[in-house]
Design a protein around this nucleic acid. Sequence first.
DNA 1: AGTGAAAGTAGTGGCCG
DNA 2: CGGCCACTACTTTCACT
Lengths: 188, 188
Amino acid sequence: MSAQTSVGAGSSGAARRTPFGAARRTAFGTPPVPAAGVPLDDVDRAILRALEADGRMSNKDLADRVGVAASTCHARVAALRARGVLRGFHADVSPEALGRGLQAIIAVRLQAAARARLGAFARGLAERPEVRDVYLLGGAEDVLVHVAVQDSPALRAFVVEHLSTRHEVAHTQTSLVFEHLHAPTVTR
Amino acid sequence: MSAQTSVGAGSSGAARRTPFGAARRTAFGTPPVPAAGVPLDDVDRAILRALEADGRMSNKDLADRVGVAASTCHARVAALRARGVLRGFHADVSPEALGRGLQAIIAVRLQAAARARLGAFARGLAERPEVRDVYLLGGAEDVLVHVAVQDSPALRAFVVEHLSTRHEVAHTQTSLVFEHLHAPTVTR
DNA sequence: AGTGAAAGTAGTGGCCG
DNA sequence: CGGCCACTACTTTCACT
């Protein structure tokens, strides 16, 4: 199971309609389609840029913005989803609002023997509620874990319970995150 | 200017309507509201969880999912936006589809004298098209830069041009990203 | 606060430049 | 392939509970 099982699948009215003919219910960080070979024209890029800025923009507004008819725009968006260019739409929830105002990045080095289980280790971490991102690296460190916690005791508890006392882990180094800037993928 | 200026503001039909009475056009990674003190009930959390998984879910589907009337659901979402809990909705665009299939994290240490300009330095980096995230840290390193580039020459070019040859930069360490797991903020 | 109905808009599919 | 039109469905406001 991935970082987010059953959130988009479980409960009541299962397969309902979503704008843009959403076939695939994309999970976080899971690439569903290998990304095609068609190069993306200016309209496609304008659509992606607009939807990165405001993912709930109506199709009509989007069409007006990029300068095509609504039907054309709708078809473009569906095609971008089908091609795997548009992986999904996600709400941006403030961690502070959930009482997790302290962020940190923990660099983790594994025991050499444990590197074979790196994937499972990382996926296990990603299921913890305090974990926001897990980066699997090649370099001096093996994993970077981005967490949001309530306070420094909670940070310490996370590091101790899930990292430093685990036998797979050789070394950890924790750094507080003072600010996190996130930039759009499509810039021009 | 932030990591993303003018994307949600520029072109034609300026101030149009967006679902959920979007007042604020949230920029990437910019916290607009200090996050209130009302604790979030089960319905709020269910709404946030569903919208993190699928940010384009219709209000009707969302209402059915969380078990309230559409009008109630609509009001809840508007309130969550107004309180700054829901910061925005963003499309998830595959960097591979844009020809940037190689990701890396570069740890940067600045010259002591340049630390005063850290914020400006970070914001400058975030405006580069290859940059996805910039983390400002307290610890052994000052900044972590997450980039997506076309290939290793492009990675090298980025590091040389924007990091290692800059006089503010004392040291860089580049690690390739083999996998990136992103987890939702609201887990339960 | 939450609900249900009513009016306004937007999404969807078929057909035509 | 892109635009237009009609039909259906959803979003959003408001008076009531």
